[in-house]
Design a protein around this nucleic acid. Structure first.
Lengths: 207, 207
DNA sequence: AGTAAACTACCCCTAAAGTAGTAGTTATTA
DNA sequence: TAATAACTACTACTTTAGGGGTAGTTTACT
């Protein structure tokens, strides 16, 4: 099964797969919602799931799929080698994480491996995984540790708001905002609101 | 001609195009550099050019192509509907700007239009174009107005560096760094280094 | 020779950010 | 009931940022 909001990419993949005698695309979806709906009547051995999609994203889709107790293998297919994404995907029970810029032949061979029960990862990700195993991660899925308020504050920081403005927005004092900023910086192991803003943007904290 | 660093997408496109009797893919490239090299011996009527690529990006590639006085039509094909990118592309002489998430049929029909001399744009971009014509743009290609030093400073800001650190990095005083920051904020019409950092990240100023 | 832009550096000043510690309230959970 | 986490608020302090102006140097282009 192919899940990707780019018809072009689906076309490319399905053509590639159709060249293989023992592989077949039995269903497709262009969004996470559609994928979950389709999975009620389509039971693929393997799902190739895009990470970047409108609506619910790939990670959320994966999480839903696992909640529904669907046994298909799931391989994330994406352009991003973002550390947080990779680790989240594996945590949510992905059977693989491949980068879209890989060679087509490599992708196909990885599909077979995954079907055989192997955990497949793009070579480019080895370093990330290694670091996470060593516990040397810079971003050990810290984001979820932020409280609701801290996330709200972070979002406004990303928009360039000062502590004073943030305070007015939430009807709290600037002093309290400073507390939130201090705490979120500590949790994210960052040193300034600038770093926090960049981190938030790069990790696509939705505004 | 197809230029995209994702083999999968090239495959999808070329399959799509091969279904058309009067269209044919005569060459491909997986990077800007490769594209420019290939264009010395391959003269396509139309080039489909990805924006996001490693090495020199799509815009730079387009600029090079125009400098070489190559007469092929060029359509930018990308996932981003970023205002700056769109306007830059048109300024550099693109004959079209299409989003990758468009329907395949639509993309094909746009190719014909472009070959006919039309300027083709994804419908999703209409609003952006309209605003730019009205001069209401938030980002009127301001970036190129930054001096070399200002760009360097901006890059370090994005990495969370303080003015003091930036000064040490370039062996200039903190006071001078402040001058650069002040000037670049004015040029970009931003109010703080946080906004500058976010702007830089969102517009992919390469670090 | 003259002009303009870029880079440098300084002054003065205000505002904003960040650090540290204390502490009260509420809600949840063990 | 006791403990914990989250949110709030404060004081006090230091550092960083940002705005304004002036001005010297170099480089490049008239």
């Amino acid at each position: 099964m192919l899940v990707d909001d780019h018809p072009l990419l689906r076309k490319g993949l399905s053509q590639l797969i159709s060249l293989e005698d023992d592989l077949e695309v039995i269903c497709e979806a262009s969004s996470g919602e559609e994928a979950i709906a389709t999975l009620t009547h389509c039971k693929p051995d393997l799902i190739l799931l895009d990470l970047e999609m409108k609506g619910i994203n790939g990670l959320e889709t994966l999480s839903e799929i696992r909640k529904l107790n669907i046994q298909s293998k799931v391989i994330m297919l994406t352009v991003s080698d973002n550390e947080t994404d990779v680790l989240q995907a594996l945590k949510f029970g992905a059977d693989g994480y491949l980068l879209k810029d890989a060679e087509p032949e490599e992708i196909i061979s990885q599909l077979y491996k995954a079907l055989g029960g192997e955990l497949v990862l793009s070579p480019a990700l080895n370093q990330i995984i290694a670091r996470s195993i060593q516990g040397t991660m810079s971003t050990p899925t810290i984001f979820e540790k932020l409280t609701k308020r801290e996330v709200e504050v972070l979002k406004l920081i990303t928009q360039g708001a000062s502590n004073k403005v943030i305070g007015r927005t939430f009807s709290i004092t600037e002093a309290t905002v400073k507390v939130h900023v201090k705490n979120l910086l500590k949790k994210l192991n960052l040193r300034s609101r600038v770093e926090a803003a960049v981190w938030a943007v790069e990790n696509k904290i939705t505004l």
